[in-house]
Amino acid sequence: MKQAPTHYCPGCGHGIVHRLICEVLDEMNLKEKTVAVAPVGCSVLAYDYWDFDTTEAAHGRTPAVATGIKRVLPDRLVFTYQGDGDLAAIGTAEIIHSGNRGENISTIFVNNGVYGMTGGQMAPTTLIGQVSTTTPGSRRADRDGYPLKIMEMMAVLPGVVYLERTTVTSPKEVTKTKNAIKRSFEIQLAEEGFSMVEVLSPCPTYWGLDPSQSMRRIENEVVKAFPLGVIKGGDHGP
């Protein structure tokens, strides 16, 4: 991490995931081999905090940009960092097809169930009953559809080798997230194909909860819609 303090709200999960990525890259001695692609959303400024090569991408096109980089530089570690708006809404086609091509990249997908940067609108991952600025009352299935489970969708693609959903609600879960990120990077170095780690992450600001309550909400509610664990590649890996 660079010295700059982040712009994230108090208790935002992005800071934890940012740090875990840096820790893994340091431990694997990959900092000088890494090119990361930042999304549009709260984490667009990730490049202000990471001390390795980073590029921006247009909203949702993050995996397409990563594809271009990785194909040109196949021996570098290339990963995308995406939120749920970037990955599961506007960038659905890009993520599905990068997976389907078995693109040898890693994706760190931070799912906080809301558009934070633009003011708390409904995301594809917003839970039924969750309040957002664009779902008067709350999200209703009959009007707004259902929380989109990208991981489960991608599990059927042969090019996708490893999918794990984790969270950051406790030191134990933080450790699992770190291990999952590490595994994803190892899979890429072994040239096995596409892998993705989805991190259920708190947005205290737009959930209207304090940071601690936000963590409990993930444990009690969010995991019911988005179950934790290895979704694909449990017996697979370096």
Binding site: P5, Y8, G13, H14, G15, R19, P171, V174, T175
Partner: peptide, 10 residues
């Protein structure tokens, strides 16, 4: 080190 692990702000 549990506090370090949970701190979102390094």
């Amino acid at each position: 080190g549990l506090c370090v692990m949970m701190c979102p702000d390094c």
